[in-house]
């Protein structure tokens, strides 16, 4: 197997997810990596530390914005010129678009949402939980190259302390790849609470009914000594700040206790909290997918339940 791993980066650091995928690839065989951006040479050299044998660098002003299509151009060329048989990505908004674009470009198979990859009888098999994780599917590829996209947090990075050979890639972009341009790029938000390290999180979703009801969530969080989180739907609606968002495009958290209030449990949210210890869900819709992965599911009106719950917790703790 010859692996090529897409090493994603943001503001001068590698994205942890993609480092985890690199560690997995290095475990399975010889793993090369590619770093694409502008002014990324120094960063690229650090790839060896995380298990890359060789790091390709595509460094060009036209690659500064984290847009997918120019990255497909770079990867296509690398795979064609150097014969990689497997290209691996860690889930992100950017990586998903690059992986699928590359699959179409190379007429290659893409398996997504994988939680593991193993070698079996000389070929690769991916593990993919499906249908709300009610079934674990073994997926394969019928041809090479193979493209795989892994679920967030599937693997932990390992700092092996190695050194990688670094080599430049010539950049040649397709016309259509430059027709989408970044007008304003997001920066990591430093304001707002950091919820990643909290042991207890109380999260609110659209079921709260309006921004004014976040007070109920805040009061319960305070009583439990925990932090407040929110779903994408309520963040996009402006009810709560982005810094508190848990999910695919927000924070990934794994507290000991996660209380989901008025949250349906869409996959976008679930991937950000599925490794929590104990999950308690309160929702008035008994069919909400959140109940399929809650340790305690409560079907009822959160406006009735939350104030009483907060009061009882306070009494117990005082």
């Amino acid at each position: 197997m010859s692996f090529l791993v897409f090493l994603e980066h943001h503001e001068g650091d590698f994205v942890k997810n993609s480092l985890g995928v690199l560690a997995k690839a290095a475990d399975l065989g010889e793993a090369d990596a590619v770093v694409i951006g502008s002014g990324v040479h120094e960063l690229a050299a650090k790839g060896g530390d995380f298990g890359a044998r060789k790091v390709w660098v595509a460094d060009d002003a036209g690659l500064e914005a984290p847009l997918p299509q120019p990255r497909v151009d770079v990867l296509e060329r690398l795979v064609r010129d150097h014969g990689y048989d497997t290209v691996l990505f860690g889930q992100s908004v950017l990586a998903a678009d690059v992986a699928a674009g590359l699959a179409a470009r190379l007429d290659a198979g893409l398996n997504w949402d994988l939680t593991d990859l193993l070698e079996q009888d000389g070929t690769l098999v991916g593990k993919r939980p499906a249908l709300q994780d009610s079934v674990l599917v073994d997926v394969g590829w019928k041809s090479e190259p193979r493209v795989a996209l892994f679920r967030s947090g599937a693997f932990d990075p390992t700092q092996a302390g190695g050194e990688a050979e670094v080599e430049d890639v010539e950049v040649e972009l397709q016309d259509f790849s430059t027709k989408a341009t970044m007008v304003e790029q997001a920066h990591a938000e430093s304001e707002g609470p950091s919820i990643e390290d909290d042991d207890v999180i109380v999260a609110g979703g659209r079921g709260l009914g309006g921004p004014e009801h976040f007070k109920l969530v805040e009061e319960l969080a305070q009583a439990l000594g925990g932090a407040v989180a929110a779903t994408r739907a309520v963040v996009d609606a402006g009810w709560y700040p982005y810094a508190a968002q848990v999910g695919q495009t927000g924070k990934t958290v794994s507290p000991k206790l996660y209380v989901a209030v008025g949250i349906s449990g869409a996959i976008q949210h679930k991937v950000g909290m599925q490794s929590s210890g104990t999950v308690v869900a309160i929702n008035k819709d008994g069919n909400a997918p959140i109940f399929e992965f809650a340790d305690l599911g409560v079907v009822g009106d959160l406006h009735e339940i939350l104030p009483k719950l907060t009061e009882l917790v306070k009494q117990r703790r005082s």
Partner: peptide, 14 residues
């Protein structure tokens, strides 16, 4: 206006 892991980007496409 799109949302990513890092906040909101604004992108224009012809």
């Amino acid at each position: 206006k799109r949302q990513t892991e890092f906040g909101y980007d604004v992108i224009e496409a012809t």
